[in-house]
Nucleic acid binder design. Sequence first.
DNA 1: AAGGTTGTCAACCGCTAGGTG
DNA 2: ACACCTAGCGGTTGACAACCT
Length: 275
Amino acid sequence: MGRPPCCDNGVGVKKGPWTPEEDIVLVSYIQQHGPGNWRSVPENTGLMRCSKSCRLRWTNYLRPGIKRGNFTPHEEGIIIHLQALLGNKWAAIASYLPQRTDNDIKNYWNTHLKKKVKRLQQPADSFQTAPTSNAVTSPNYYSPSSSSHHSFQGMQPMNSYPNTTCTSAPSNNETATISNLFQTWPTATANCKITMQDFQEEQDAAAASIVCKDQTATGDVSKSSALEMMVTPVMGASTATFSLLEEWLLNDMPGQAMDGLMGLSAGCCADPIMF
DNA sequence: AAGGTTGTCAACCGCTAGGTG
DNA sequence: ACACCTAGCGGTTGACAACCT
């Protein structure tokens, strides 16, 4: 037998919007015990919520350091660019915007950016026959260089950010109360998920070998393929691989950075441990 | 002013990988 | 080795607000 069943399908489990009281109970508990072991949260707090709901509420709303409200052009640029590179890997994208949650980014993409990108691509599509499945390869792809080049300055993965702080003003008394509860909270970063690393780890050696095969077969590598190479899973390699990604994103001359990537990818095929 | 439409976003649902007993 | 659970992810839904007619 495995573990005892969780509360997820239990009777009397409350659903729907969280009340300020529930938020305070949850925050108080996590402040004392730290995030994690979500199963014990409803049991120990008396919250009539399932553990999953508690975790979600924490990660998407109550976690310290979360920035709410309008996205800056800087953040928009990062999201658009990374979405084109990574696809709908919201957690991976969120790792580059430590103050934003994956849910927030996903919502913002679906409600704002998707249309925005579509609009920007539309005029070109009318006379372009190139496939649009990989927007990066399209010369008409929304480019940070044309709208907000330096919006990418300073972009780096979350785990290299300094401690995050809550920059948004409390929207109401509840938020202020919860913020006060966290005045002694050590660091926000320590409690964030290192999802980019997770994403890297997801890409196993098989994926890398497929990409390398593609490369040798076609002699050409798209940016998305290059990204797959970059995310070859070698623990401790994330710094090197994503420094290149960042350089690539930061530069308006992808070809130059790509040269470096090509070199690395060749190395990765020959000996993945190299990077 | 009232009703309808559209936009926003918090929360839920379903699935998967990895962990545990 | 197996069955089951947890944590995490991406997609979807539904309530509410803002806007339009």
